[in-house]
Computed example of a mutant assay.
Amino acid sequence: MKIGLDIMGGDYAPKATVLGAIEAYKVLQGHKLVLIGDKEAAIGILREHNFDPDNFEYVHTTEVIGMGEHPTKAVVQKADSSISVGFRMLKEGQIDAFSSAGNTGAMLVGSMFSVKTIPGILRPAITTIVPRLNGGINILLDVGANADCKPEVLVQFGVLGSLMAQSVYGIENPRVALMNIGEEEEKGNLLCQATYPLMKETSQFNFIGNAEGRDLFGDAADVFVCDGFTGNIILKLAESFYVITRKKGLKDEFFDRFNYEQYGGSPILGINAPVVVGHGISSPEAIKNMVLLSKDMVESELVAKVTEAFQ
């Protein structure tokens, strides 16, 4: 297996990404990591930390897509950027997965226009993991790829989340809930009211009804579905829990699990290859876990399972 890592993506690149690659190498167990970006800078960091550069493969690029750049324009105009080259390699089968902590919009654009969406998928979704009080995890999607959604798109998110829960996290017959402002079937905005009956009728996943925000960190469901606008607000709020407890001097195992570093990144589901997007402020630990999540995505054969489900 070859995993492509954009070493130029993120606020602390390339140092944080290269150091994260070192940590990932220690646990990859024979799988190859391909560093995409400024080769000389990467080798300099590796030698500075007494790490053999020959442990990695390299693809040198001369351009970087900044965090604030327009995604579509940047991907088109910067053909030799680490993100553009990474997607080209993924499309051509030179790598099995691609991950980056760089411009999220550019990663979405690259996903949709390079490796493309799986036939039948209306819109890809970005997923995230949220911790449960009892020690497990829940899946939330979409968390930012689609600010506005149609009911049939949310139904597809239910399929994607269910397959991910089964394939990557080993959850049998995962329970899928629609994020709403009340448990009753008739509750919610127009989108939720139109989506509920479609989910109720589907046989593609185990729909258990509406869920409220207070249910997200419990065991009422395994997969929580919402539009990307709602999901992104929930995600950013949840991420603040860890920061707040640290600032208040509180040490709590549950709130420690809100640390984004533990999860590494968010998979983009519904496209023809494993792609993981990391947080812009990713540390070496987060980069390591982003790479390991990419490995899990490949080994789970999730893309093939999604493709089969939508045939």
Rank of each mutant, 00 (worst) to 15 (best):
N146Y: 11
G228T: 05
L33S: 01
E261P: 00
Y242A: 03
I36S: 03
D96E: 14
F98A: 01
V27I: 15
Q156I: 15
D222M: 02
G93N: 06
E48T: 12
E172Y: 05
K251P: 00
G218K: 13
K2S: 04
G93Y: 11
E299F: 07
I95A: 05
T17C: 15
M112N: 11
G265Q: 06
S111D: 07
I244L: 13
V291D: 10
F224M: 08
K295Q: 14
G265C: 07
G110A: 11
L160F: 14
I181S: 05
F241C: 09
I43N: 00
F217W: 11
I126N: 02
K116E: 14
V159T: 15
Q262S: 04
F258K: 03
N138E: 10
D11A: 03
Q94A: 13
A211I: 15
E185P: 01
G209R: 00
S111I: 09
G170L: 11
V176I: 09
D11F: 04
S266C: 14
F56Q: 10
I233N: 03
T307Q: 15
K236N: 02
N146R: 07
M112R: 07
Q166Y: 12
P124T: 13
L154P: 05
H31V: 09
A42S: 11
G265E: 08
A42I: 13
A41E: 14
A106W: 12
E186I: 14
T202D: 06
L108K: 00
F241A: 10
I234G: 00
V18Q: 01
M179K: 09
E308G: 06
A79R: 15
G161Y: 09
E212V: 15
T61I: 13
A177T: 06
R214T: 15
G161P: 07
K247Q: 15
G37R: 02
E261L: 00
E23I: 05
I65H: 03
R123L: 10
M8T: 09
L293N: 01
K288L: 09
F56A: 01
G218Y: 12
G20Q: 07
S100L: 12
L237S: 14
V18W: 02
T307W: 07
L5C: 04
V75E: 09
S82K: 04
L19C: 02
K26N: 13
P284Y: 13
G213I: 08
Q166P: 01
K26Y: 02
I271N: 00
A21H: 08
V64Y: 01
V225W: 00
G135L: 13
G231V: 09
L33T: 06
G161K: 10
G93L: 07
T62R: 13
I83F: 13
K236P: 00
F157K: 06
A220W: 11
D222W: 02
V243Q: 11
N210V: 02
K236S: 05
D256M: 04
K251H: 08
G188N: 01
P274S: 08
G228A: 05
V18Y: 01
E201W: 08
L154H: 07
V225P: 00
D6W: 05
V277D: 03
P53Y: 15
T128R: 03
V176Q: 05
K26S: 10
N210F: 03
E23H: 08
A147M: 14
I83T: 11
N103D: 12
H49E: 15
S282M: 13
A145P: 00
V75C: 08
V276C: 12
Y169T: 07
M112G: 02
L33H: 07
A101Q: 10
G213P: 04
N289I: 02
V276Y: 06
M67C: 01
V85N: 09
T202L: 04
